[in-house]
Amino acid sequence: MPTFFLEVLTPERKFFSGEAEEVIFRSVDGEIGILAMHAPTVVAVDVGPLKIKADGKWSEALVTEGFAEIMPDKVIILTDTAEYPEEIDINRAKAAKDRAEERLQKQLSQLEYARSKTALARAMARLKITNPK
């Protein structure tokens, strides 16, 4: 299967860098799958799973908001956070989920509401990726 160069970068680290056969992630318009020779485009990345197929094997991680630049021979994903399931602190994610749900029960400004919804989405995604079913 043809490959392309994939880089997943966060402000703290180079999360992934290497050849990939396929990458799947959630964009703001829905899930998107990328193969070699994809048409050039830029998309907004949304909170959700990141699936990478390299050397015939799939690995899964979590990414949060960001952007992806897609070219026929290279994909660069710039994201706020990228984590493998084993890097996620489940207790911390549960506490974040509870805090976000509590904040959403209160009367909030539009900005506070949007931030709470985003925090809840991140916490739920972290919990889901650590316990896929």
Rank of each mutant, 00 (worst) to 15 (best):
H38W: 04
L6T: 07
E69D: 15
G66S: 02
M1T: 06
P40T: 15
V8P: 02
T79D: 12
D46S: 13
E60I: 15
V75K: 01
Q107E: 14
D89T: 08
F15L: 05
K14S: 14
R26N: 06
I76N: 13
S17R: 11
E19Y: 14
L50H: 10
A93V: 08
M71D: 10
P132W: 13
A123K: 07
A39R: 14
N91G: 07
I34P: 07
G30K: 05
T79I: 07
G66Y: 06
R99K: 12
V75S: 03
D80F: 06
E12Y: 01
W58N: 07
R122L: 09
L35Y: 12
D80W: 01
I34D: 02
K106G: 06
E87L: 10
L9S: 00
R122K: 14
K117Y: 02
K106I: 02
R92F: 11
P85F: 07
F67K: 09
D80G: 08
S116D: 00
G48N: 04
L62R: 09
A61W: 02
R103A: 04
W58D: 13
D98V: 05
I24C: 11
K14C: 15
A68D: 10
A39K: 12
I129C: 03
F67A: 07
F16I: 09
R26W: 03
E69T: 12
R99M: 06
K117A: 04
F15Y: 10
M124I: 14
F5M: 05
I24Q: 08
P49F: 08
G56I: 01
L120T: 13
K97R: 14
V47N: 02
P40H: 11
